[in-house]
Write a protein that binds this DNA or RNA. Sequence first.
DNA 1: CTTGAATACCTCGGCAGCCGATGTATAATA
DNA 2: TATTATACATCGGCTGCCGAGGTATTCAAG
Lengths: 115, 115
Amino acid sequence: MDFSQDLIRGSVVPIVLALLRNRPMYGYEMVKLVNARTKGRLEWKEGTLYPTLHRLQSLGLVSARWADAPADEAPGRKRKYYSITRKGRTELARRTQEWSQFSLSVNALLLGGRL
Amino acid sequence: MDFSQDLIRGSVVPIVLALLRNRPMYGYEMVKLVNARTKGRLEWKEGTLYPTLHRLQSLGLVSARWADAPADEAPGRKRKYYSITRKGRTELARRTQEWSQFSLSVNALLLGGRL
DNA sequence: CTTGAATACCTCGGCAGCCGATGTATAATA
DNA sequence: TATTATACATCGGCTGCCGAGGTATTCAAG
């Protein structure tokens, strides 16, 4: 479907935080996972994700550590695993709420319903 | 609630087109209406809307004409009324579809549901 | 063995849209 | 008379997305 990039904007941060809710992940994994889970309707680019992760880290919303990939997955390969911080969880809650209000508002206006 | 501007981005165009679906409107009216209908959750700025309207016009998605405000509303006042064109309606359909797919995707990722 | 694809990380500059600030002019209200 | 509301507009700053490009490793195919 190939969304206009303007729609994508602003959704990257909350989605990243949401992905890290349950377990640490590495960047490349997030890209593939988002693209797969949305069947390519969202098509994340590495050129977007990596700078975003660094930004979130500098804001203290995620933390990163290098580690070996599990031996049964990709033995001998190094990956940079990101985890969400306590501060990040607070921000996630805020952003989720924000998204929900926002999407309700837009839906109401677009689909003509009352708010 | 005061959304991050990044979320707003990309939603302005489809909303403008949707507003014009039923009747012509003037810019100032759209700003007030959106702010009121969303109870200030969306807070449109004139500095965003006017350039957007001009852009849409140059793309042939809307047309504009100056006219007197109705005598029972604001007698003696000039307004610039925008209407959606046929091309604009096609674009509206596309954008509505796009938004719907997009918001479903984001919702699924944010709220953890399956797609 | 060498080539190519997949994995996994990264940077940089261009671009486009939102917004704050600012400006103009008129009508209504205090 | 001064202020507020209506109604239009522009402009530059900022920020984030993306295309293009780069490095290095692992693994399968030729």
